[in-house]
Design a protein around this nucleic acid. Structure first.
Length: 477
RNA sequence: GGGGUAGUGGUCUAGCUUGGUUAUGACACCAGCCUAGGGCGCUGGUGGCCCUGGGUUCAAAUCCCAGCUACCCCA
């Protein structure tokens, strides 16, 4: 059984994170670097996430499909920027059995190329568009940096959507609509507030025209990219020879999007909400939304019967509930255990509750205790919604305080170097300037707001040239 | 890409400097008893290729080299 967390979240975020993830039995390291084991308690949250997102995608007509794991080098290399971006982290298959392959095969780092090879055969006419396909799979990127459970692996569970449209407007709208789904998912399911924006030239996806992103703010003033959605323009349709005849019988290259969210989103939720006692889960993804802990001194049978009564009532209401009537563990032990596991609501039932026909509730987020008459047990659902809301709003408020508009270069560098706060500043947006910022501070631009904003300053905060946009800067996980 | 730190039953660890009986302790786990409002108590028990491979030595958990894994710092 699990033991407590021995590191404070504030003093060492990564040690704390590893302990929380492993001790709560969400995930574990395997023998291969960067390849994690996701255990039932963690995987169940991913399943819930998949279910939510899948129905969102399907609501706009996206269908699921499956494309091969392996991509021939010649196909992967068709789009120049794309291969240049991914080449350093591709894992290759070069031998089958004991036969050297004529052409090496990439384990997909992402599937644009292999999918668009098929798309070029399928798309002939405007009547074939839009083509809206998604796949749930895993990809492999050979990370050389530290790998982390959920947050950065060499093998990553995710979904990748790949859509094709007649016009640029439709495609760009699709990329933005999907970004909005991601934002909704992160906020409604994981209680993680995010900021939506565009990526800079150097941070965008290799081969994209525009990369849209949603980023979460962390307690150490880092930002973490939770999902991205790319408008690809005709960058892929041209090299892959995807063409359609329009209504006027003219050949056109279509416009494309690709978009993905991975298990990293779960890791971000853990970072954002966890505390020194362990996980703090939103009721919307928690495997158990509440746990009933019997406290037995006398009248054991009556108390247990009352517990079962509460359990079946909650189940009837559609609440995911666990009745832990194991006698070999004390109530105190169980309270700590379910704190570690992040169960949103604990219900303690002893003689007091039995006699008064009520329930003692304790919330995970703030450890507040309250008493509820059994007759009002229907309010538990509402209580769970309250928990989700205060998790979301609490972090949203906290996040706002971590962002500062800045126009002094000196403060900008100091703030980023020491992660004092997230800096919003006006910026020229060039890759050269971004490179220098990264070298000097260790931070990068995380996003540029979607809507045009009034510039904080007319000059770029770093190089002093003409500013083009406002941007958020922070170190990132 | 460069440098550093660590790896001992499931977990955390002692031992390593200065090589030498049966590898230390706590927790967890198993059996039995006892218990219950924030990690109950007692008794007994199971469980180790001391990360892997090589080297030095009469002798290696201990010294040396390499690899693997995790973590940290720098670019």
């Amino acid at each position: 059984m699990a033991e407590g967390i021995s590191v404070k979240k504030e003093s060492d975020l990564i040690s704390w994170y590893n302990q929380v993830v492993i001790k709560s039995e969400m995930a574990d390291f395997s023998v291969v670097k960067g390849f994690a084991v996701y255990r039932p308690y963690g995987y169940e949250m991913w399943e819930r996430s998949v279910e939510y997102l899948d129905s969102k995608f399907k609501s706009i007509g996206v269908k699921n499909a499956y494309f091969p794991l392996l991509i021939p080098e010649s196909i992967l290399s068709k789009e120049k920027e794309h291969i240049a971006g991914f080449n350093p982290e591709v894992a290759w298959v070069t031998i089958g059995g004991d036969t050297e392959l004529d052409e090496r095969l990439a384990i997909r780092p992402t599937s644009e190329t292999i999918m668009y090879d098929s798309y070029s055969k399928w798309i002939k006419s405007y009547r074939d568009l839009p083509l809206l396909i998604n796949q749930w799979n895993t990809m492999v990127r050979w990370e050389t940096k530290e790998t982390r459970l959920f947050l950065r692996g060499r093998e990553v569970l995710w979904q990748e959507g790949h859509c094709v449209f007649k016009t640029a407007e439709e495609a760009d709208k699709n990329a933005r609509d999907i970004l909005n789904f991601y934002k909704q998912f992160l906020e409604e399911m994981l209680a993680v507030p995010v900021i939506a924006g565009k990526k800079s030239q150097s941070e965008k996806f290799a081969g994209a025209v525009t990369t849209y992103t949603v980023e979460a703010i962390l307690s150490n003033n880092f930002m973490s990219q939770a999902a991205t959605s790319h408008y690809l323009g005709q960058n892929f349709s041209k090299p892959f020879d995807i063409k359609f005849l329009d209504e006027k019988n003219e050949l056109q290259y279509p416009f494309q999007t690709s978009w993905g969210i991975s298990m990293r989103s779960i890791g971000i939720m853990l970072l954002v909400h966890g505390d020194d006692k362990g996980l703090v889960l939103s009721p919307h993804v928690a495997p158990y939304q509440c746990v009933i802990i019997p406290i037995i001194k006398e009248e054991k049978d009556k108390i247990l019967e009352y517990c079962s009564q509460i359990e079946s009532k909650l189940k009837e209401m559609g609440v995911r509930v666990l009745l832990d009537s194991r006698e070999e563990y004390s109530p105190g032990w169980k309270l700590n255990e379910y704190d570690l596991k992040g169960v949103p609501l604990k219900i303690q039932i002893g003689k007091r509750e039995l006699d008064n026909k009520n329930l003692s509730l304790k919330t995970r987020i703030n450890n507040v205790q309250s008493v509820m008459p059994f007759s009002e047990i229907g309010d538990v659902k509402e209580k769970l919604e309250d928990i989700h809301r205060s998790m979301l709003e609490g972090v949203r408020e906290d996040g706002k305080k971590r962002i500062k508009e800045e126009s002094s270069k000196e403060n900008f560098i100091k703030a980023l170097k020491e992660s004092l706060y997230i800096v919003k500043a006006s910026w020229c947006g060039t890759p050269e300037c971004e490179d220098k910022i990264k070298n000097e501070t260790g931070a990068t631009s995380r996003l540029i707001p979607l809507e045009d904003e009034k510039l904080i300053n007319e000059k770029c905060i770093f190089c002093g040239k003409e500013a083009k946009v406002n941007a958020y800067f922070a170190k990132s996980y």
